[in-house]
């Protein structure tokens, strides 16, 4: 059981890492350029400011927004600041080719997180099997999609994936909401999938809705320094890559589970 989970997690993690470097990493690097001030959203191109009055106005407005960030969200800004000053790899990759150490760590941690997901999925397979349910690749795929909904999609409804440079509410509060949303969504999907009584479906609906009725912690205003197009593309690609990698994870884990390999 454990070795099957490790294998499925590694395979899905490598798929996720491949898709990450294809779709997501370029946007992270671009976001960091805006975060560090190397690029400025709405900045007038050097030497052409006279051609672009509206752009210059917008840049001035952007600078004012920057000041507002420092005043209105000192905690969030300070929090982001301390972490980013600690990033030895922060912008090391820019212009000097890929940052191998940074990228290898990203691959390693992506594999690690998918192994973690795989353990949680396989624990679910164990419970389903003990209750007399068959688990094969098809059921694994459904479990994988459920896991994706619980651990990525539902939390993203309240806390969209953050492009570096985003300013968000207090980290602790967001983490609490994230875990509660993941847990309640997982419980809701299990009740939908395996519940037999009407009350189970009512309870499922309540569990799925509750985190969003309460609402994720937000700042109530927007302080991002990156273009909205970049942040939107980032969020969409993160969710798309997650869907594909979770589908692969569930299918592979279900495949190994049904064959009894690695038990």
């Amino acid at each position: 059981m454990v070795s099957g989970a490790v294998f499925a997690g590694c395979a899905a993690g490598l798929i996720a890492a491949l898709l990450h470097f294809w779709f997501v990493q370029p946007l992270i690097l671009a976001g960091e350029q805006f975060e560090s001030g190397e690029r400025v959203h709405f900045a007038a191109p050097a030497g052409h400011a006279h051609d672009h009055g509206t752009a210059a106005d917008a840049a001035a407005e952007g600078a004012a927004d920057g000041a507002a960030v420092a005043q209105a969200a000192p905690d969030a800004e300070a929090e982001a600041g301390h972490d980013h000053s600690a990033h030895e790899h922060g912008t090391a990759g820019h212009g000097t080719g890929p940052d191998i150490k940074r990228d290898l760590l990203t691959v390693a941690f992506t594999v690690l997180i998918y192994v973690a997901y795989a353990f949680i999925l396989v624990a679910g397979f164990g419970a389903a099997t003990a209750m007399g349910q068959r688990v094969g690749p098809l059921q694994g795929l459904l479990w994988g999609l459920g896991g994706y909904a619980a651990f990525q999609l539902a939390p993203a409804l309240g806390l969209p994936p953050e492009l570096p440079g985003s300013v968000a509410a207090d980290l602790g509060a967001r983490q609490v909401w994230w875990w509660a949303t993941a847990g309640l969504t997982a419980a809701g999907f299990l009740l939908l999938g395996y519940g037999r009584k009407p009350w189970a479906f009512v309870l499922a609906g309540a569990a799925l809705a509750l985190p969003h009725v309460i609402g994720a912690p937000t700042l109530g205003d927007y302080f991002g320094v990156a273009p909205p197009e970049l942040a939107a593309a980032f969020a969409a690609r993160v969710l798309g890559v997650g869907l594909l990698a979770w589908a692969a994870l569930g299918w592979i884990a279900g495949h190994f589970w049904s064959r009894g390999d690695g038990v």
């Binding site: 990450h20 997501v24 990493q25 992270i28 929090e79 982001a80 972490d83 980013h84 600690a86 990033h87 030895e88 790899h89 940074r102 760590l105 990203t106 390693a108 941690f109 992506t110 690690l112 997180i113 192994v115 973690a116 997901y117 353990f119 949680i120 990525q152 939390p155 993203a156 806390l159 969209p160 994936p161 953050e162 492009l163 570096p164 968000a168 980290l171 967001r174 983490q175 994230w178 875990w179 993160v238 969710l239 890559v241 997650g242």
Partner: peptide, 29 residues
Amino acid sequence: LMFVAGHAQSATLHDAAHDMRHATGFPCH
């Protein structure tokens, strides 16, 4: 594992896992 890789706030862990955390939608910092 998910807590350590995705949520623990030690500076070393945070930096090493930084890109994955952003790319997985975890609240990062």
